[in-house]
Simulated scan of single mutants.
Amino acid sequence: RKSRRYNSYKGTIGRVAKNLIHRRFYTSIPHQKVTTDTSEFKYYEHDKNKKLVIKKLYLDPFLDMFNGEILSYRISERPNAKAIMDAQKEAIDRTDDCPYRRTFHSDQGWAYQMKAYKKQLTKQNIFQSMSRKGNCFDNSPMENFFGLLKQEMYYGVIYASFKQLKQAIEDWIHYRIKTKLGCSPIQYREQMTA
């Protein structure tokens, strides 16, 4: 049975940032442009009455637009601020070597409008950019990542536990090779900055 797609937009709960990226996703500088979003996955477990129950898992990755590398991510059983804030902090720390001012891009989801999320970016002198409301093409690098991930390891496979699905996602992220780069995203960055 097809269910409603997860949507992190809950209206304006904070301040919406301007779209500074304007679909200019390409950058020749590692760690300059970073994008993020949340995606929902389903798995199936039996409850104590042996009835099949649909459960959900949420993935919050931060992706470097330079090479498609996942800088950080968190996986949780429900959408929550802590997972996003922890992944954001790790992404900020990992991109600290960028010689130019960084931009973190997202959609207008509730988590990216939070004062705490914005405060961390401001504190590190990072620009915040947001897609226009309801326009997935404004964040296509992240949408493409989710599409590729689900196509290669999720669609057509039934996962029987949170642990099993989480492990499959982690294995895919760590193994992932961008064919257009001809090597892993990390190797590509090292070659370009050597």
Rank of each mutant, 00 (worst) to 15 (best):
M130H: 01
R78C: 06
Y154Q: 02
Y43S: 00
T38A: 11
E45R: 00
N144R: 15
Y73N: 03
R1I: 08
Y188T: 06
S161Q: 04
S184G: 11
K48E: 14
Q151E: 13
S3V: 13
F104L: 13
T193S: 12
Q151K: 15
S3K: 10
I158Y: 00
M65E: 09
F162T: 00
R78A: 12
G134T: 09
D171C: 02
G68S: 08
M142S: 07
S76Y: 04
R101S: 12
I158C: 01
P61S: 05
F127V: 07
P141M: 08
F104A: 06
L20M: 00
K51M: 09
I70M: 14
R189F: 03
G109N: 06
T36I: 11
T36L: 09
D37Q: 06
F127D: 15
L52S: 08
N144C: 14
S39A: 13
K119I: 03
F127M: 07
D96C: 12
M192R: 13
V53D: 03
S106A: 09
C183K: 13
F104P: 02
A168R: 00
Q124Y: 07
N135F: 01
D64A: 05
Q128Y: 08
K163R: 12
G11F: 05
A111L: 09
P79Y: 00
G134V: 10
F104W: 04
S39D: 07
G182L: 04
T35V: 14
S140Y: 03
R23F: 10
Y100A: 08
A91P: 06
T95S: 15
H31C: 10
F41K: 00
D96Q: 12
L121C: 12
T38N: 03
I92S: 10
C183S: 13
L121R: 12
P185F: 10
K150E: 03
G14I: 08
K123A: 14
F62N: 10
A17Q: 10
C98F: 02
G156P: 01
N49I: 02
M142L: 05
L165C: 02
V34A: 08
R15H: 13
K118N: 08
G156L: 02
I126Q: 10
E45I: 01
S106R: 03
A81L: 15
P99H: 06
D86T: 12
Y154R: 00
Q108L: 07
Y43H: 01
F127K: 07
H22Y: 11
R94F: 11
K50L: 12
L20D: 02
F127P: 01
W110N: 03
Y159W: 04
K10F: 03
V34N: 09
N139G: 07
D96N: 13
Y188F: 15
N135L: 04
Y155S: 11
T36W: 02
G182E: 01
G68N: 04
S39R: 05
A17R: 08
A194S: 11
Q88V: 07
E152Q: 14
L59M: 06
I54G: 00
Q187I: 14
A160V: 05
E90Q: 15
T122K: 15
I29Y: 06
G109K: 10
Y155D: 14
P61R: 10
L63Q: 09
E77Y: 00
K180R: 09
S184P: 04
C98P: 09
T12L: 06
R189Y: 06
K166G: 06
L71T: 13
A91C: 12
I13Y: 00
N7T: 11
I173Y: 00
L181W: 01
K82Y: 03
K166E: 12
G182V: 04
Y100P: 05
L148G: 15
W172E: 08
